[in-house]
Design a binder for these strands. Structure first.
Lengths: 194, 194
DNA sequence: AACCATATAGACCGGTTGATCTACTCGTCA
DNA sequence: TGACGAGTAGATCAACCGGTCTATATGGTT
């Protein structure tokens, strides 16, 4: 257990790599990571086997964090599935307003990692599946007639927010998407009302 | 005028760079481009001043082509603004089903070009402005009460389609987005009916 | 005190990057 | 014919890439 003790080389490497890959892309050099982490070259290869291993671990760690963040956001919004789902879009509005927001880390990774066999792709795919399940679970609780399709639509809106947030943040894409999200959720109302 | 004559080094460079930057990212090496274009090293620096100049010209050329493609798609759909706008989403469904589709070239460029001062960013920004104008123009013709905001929403859907199409094409994001697009357009109906 | 795993510093490797340069070939036009 | 501009071929450059290596220092356990 390294909790509470000074962060070791492994933690420092992950933190530096997470930061640098987001701000400078997956093409960042190993030397730059080592320098920011203040870690010896050898330690990287001891802990992660190489650059790809480090990048994969960064993605694994980040997806776990972001998944937990989705859960936290929804839990903070109460029990009503509608509130819980819309809270996600309010949270995304905050995310893309972060001063150093640079778009979706996972889409950037998929676009940057040219080799389709790179282990990173499996990680980002699993992440999207998990988020989809999270959304679908709420839609089922909401009584939505097509929770799977609706979850896909919400995910599409999220992708759009993150893309537009990176390129045209001044258009407030999260607010625009929230309105469309409400329409998706209201499909349930149309069915239950009749 | 080089029309109809064998393509010169400049054209060959642009074609090779366009292809390779899309399939292998902006980080592709100059050597690989020169090899695919079958062009001498020196010619690249004569025509474009360097790698950045070549990349910028590729983006300029591509945006012009894609802009023309939007116009062509809408013109082929007739005069009704509603048909013209929805045709865009049908066309996007075809685009992301292309076997070698790899996501939006311009979003990938913005994410890959780390330096915010890179000339490529200005080009992608102008491109999005032009597409926004194109959409807004149709929305005005449709009598939409908030054509600017609605165009932003449609653009958000387009971003979402291209992102989801690159990462989860099996979910048919274009069809999912088309339904949401219809809702955006129908906002007009709600207003004109009263 | 002795030991050992872990970390550090940094030289070193072959290969590649973007860029510059010289020398040569080719086609066109005066 | 001869000169010239454009293109080609390829050597060369410093910088950097990911990865391996040796040697040394540190800190905890027995």
């Amino acid at each position: 257990m390294s909790t509470r003790t000074a962060p070791g080389p492994r933690e420092r490497l992950l933190k530096a790599a997470k930061h640098l890959t987001y701000s400078h892309g997956m093409g960042i050099g190993v030397d730059a990571v080592l320098k920011e982490a203040n870690v010896a070259r050898r330690s990287l290869y001891e802990h992660f086997g190489g650059k790809d291993g480090l990048l994969a671990e960064v993605l694994r760690l980040s997806t776990a964090e972001d998944e937990a963040r989705y859960r936290r956001t929804m839990d903070a919004a109460g029990q009503d599935p509608r509130d819980r789902l819309l809270a996600v879009f309010d949270e995304l509005a905050r995310v893309i307003d972060t001063p150093d927001f640079r778009g979706c880390r996972y889409l950037a990774a998929d676009l940057a990692l040219t080799d389709p066999a790179h282990p990173g792709h499996a990680i980002t795919r699993d992440y999207r599946d998990h988020v989809h399940q999270l959304l679908e679970h709420e839609l089922v609780a909401l009584g939505h007639p097509q929770p799977g399709l609706a979850a896909g639509q919400l995910l599409l809106l999220i992708d759009g927010i993150l893309a537009a947030g990176a390129t045209r943040p001044e258009t407030h894409p999260a607010a625009a998407a929230r309105e469309l999200a409400e329409h998706i959720l209201d499909t349930q109302a149309r069915f239950t009302r009749r």
